[in-house]
């Protein structure tokens, strides 16, 4: 897993700017407030609202 804790601390949901957390499979970052998941592709978080999927 290449997403460090340090990076997770500053990464936020681009939509609401609230906290996000790693999903169980560690292949996505979830915003509980917006019910959106941002995928992690080849260790790179894709933090685009348009490409997030509802969860």
């Amino acid at each position: 897993m290449a997403i460090s804790k340090e990076l997770l601390d500053i990464l936020a949901c681009p939509k609401c700017k609230g906290d996000i957390h790693l999903n169980d499979k560690k292949d996505g970052l979830v915003c509980d407030a917006c019910h959106l998941q941002y995928r992690i592709q080849d260790d790179i978080p894709v933090m685009l609202i348009d490409e997030a999927v509802p969860v």
Binding site: L7, I10, L11, M47
Partner: peptide, 15 residues
């Protein structure tokens, strides 16, 4: 150095 895909109009970082 780390990289993310993200949009400057909606930056994915805390204040």
């Amino acid at each position: 150095v780390t990289f993310e895909v993200g949009d400057a109009q909606n930056l994915p970082y805390s204040d």
